[in-house]
Computed example of a mutant assay.
Amino acid sequence: MATRKIAILAEGALGWHAAKTAVGVIRYAPDTTVAVIDSTHTGMDVAEALQGPVGEGIPVVRDITEALTYQPDTLLIGIAPRGGALPESWRWQLLAAIEHGLNIVSGLHAFVSDDEELRTAAARKGVTIWDVRRPPARTRVADFTPHREGSHTVLLVGSDCGSGKMSTALDLNAEAQRRGLSSAFIATGQTGMMIANNGLPVDRLIIDFAAGLVEEQVLNFSHAHDWVFVEGQGALNHPGYSPVTLSLLHGSMPDALIFCHKAGQTAIDGYEQCLFPSLNRLIEINEEAVNWLRPERRSKVVGISLITNHLDEPHAREAVEQMMNETGLPVTDPLRFGVAPLMDALERHFAG
């Protein structure tokens, strides 16, 4: 697939968490991000707006009119407003983009191509609207088919949403390829799909078929590759999103897991009354959920990916050391310290 020149719409929300789609696309997509639209950070570059190491040199602009001066061919919606609908205040920007021949990529729960005005405008200009979250028409119930012998399926799980599951899976896939291994990444959410141009919008699948469609993807990828890194979603301990996590655990039937966590977090974001048990217990419940189905071949968490970008470097290193002491597992912040310790742990696990 040809690479795109993308303008990302992140109006009013260009931050690590609120604009995680924008951040993910900038960090990992093979496409070129030429500008980010956010009138509250106009005049900065993305790295300045994020106060971090991502997006240096990419300008933040006021609106689509200014973004067009950088000659994008695609407008990508890089944030997810509460409720998943298209804010009316954004409509003119999408219409202007379409009028100038830009394709639209959207991960919203509300499908842009179902909007009559936008669909008609796109048809008139001959541009495409990709609603990434639109689920496939096919259905499939999981049938518990074993993976190809010799292949290694690794699922990313975590303590909460936004705990680094997608980015760690992408980093591990890149590290495996650097080591000369045959590996692939399976996207299970809209951002990963925008980056990889493959995968499933698991949070839009009918629950009876979610595990089966994930299983189908994993079987296809594990037939072609020795290592398969499956992007995780949600968390088993999340009061709202645990079903999608369980579907991924049972659909992918991983041979190993990597656990993801934000240093210092003690409760589900937005559910402050929903406190975490110990990290060891969180790890244990994810292992148990896989091994309900396959007790004779136990899957385990072999390493921890830790988000520390809210800490200075000495405190980040202290958090990594503390987590290693608490769990007895290799720990790293892939963004800050690299993902090699996790790949080392996976290779040791499968060699043993």
Rank of each mutant, 00 (worst) to 15 (best):
L306E: 00
M323W: 03
T3C: 13
K5L: 10
S222A: 14
E48K: 15
P330L: 01
E88D: 10
S222M: 09
P53F: 10
A121R: 15
R62W: 10
F185Y: 07
E321C: 05
L50K: 12
Q217T: 05
L306H: 08
R82K: 15
D45A: 10
T3Y: 03
A121H: 13
I207G: 08
L293A: 15
A174T: 07
T120M: 14
A256Y: 00
T266L: 14
P201K: 09
I6A: 06
V301W: 04
M1Q: 14
G270D: 13
S89H: 11
M324L: 11
G101M: 12
D312K: 04
D38V: 12
R317E: 01
V25D: 07
P81Q: 04
I307W: 06
G52N: 11
F221V: 08
L75G: 07
T74N: 12
F111M: 09
E175M: 12
T266N: 13
A267M: 14
T33S: 07
N173S: 15
G180K: 05
H250F: 00
L156P: 00
Q273D: 03
N280L: 05
T32M: 10
A7N: 04
F259D: 12
T145A: 01
D73V: 06
H250G: 03
A2P: 15
I268R: 06
M1A: 13
P330K: 12
A67S: 08
E272F: 01
L249I: 03
T245W: 05
V214F: 06
I307K: 13
D115R: 03
A196T: 11
A176S: 09
D269N: 15
V202M: 02
V301C: 05
K262V: 09
T40N: 11
L172S: 10
N291Y: 06
G15Q: 08
H315E: 10
S242C: 09
P87F: 02
E287T: 02
T3W: 01
A319I: 00
D203S: 10
I77W: 05
A85R: 14
T191R: 05
V132T: 10
S242Q: 09
R348Y: 05
P30E: 10
P341T: 02
V290N: 00
L75K: 08
G232H: 10
E318H: 03
S163M: 08
N286F: 05
F144L: 15
G57K: 06
M253V: 14
I206M: 14
H147L: 03
G52M: 14
S305G: 11
H41M: 08
D226L: 13
A256M: 02
P295G: 13
N103Q: 14
P146T: 09
G84H: 01
M323N: 07
I64W: 00
R178S: 09
D203Q: 01
E288Y: 08
N103L: 06
V302I: 12
V34C: 07
F229L: 01
R148A: 13
G43A: 11
A122N: 14
L275M: 09
G212K: 05
D160W: 04
R140T: 03
I186N: 07
L282N: 01
I6H: 00
E149S: 15
M253C: 06
I283G: 12
N198Q: 06
M1D: 15
I8R: 04
A196D: 09
L329C: 08
D255H: 13
E11N: 03
N197K: 08
V244K: 07
E175I: 12
E347Q: 12
V25C: 04
V60G: 07
D333E: 01
K262G: 14
D171F: 06
A211M: 00
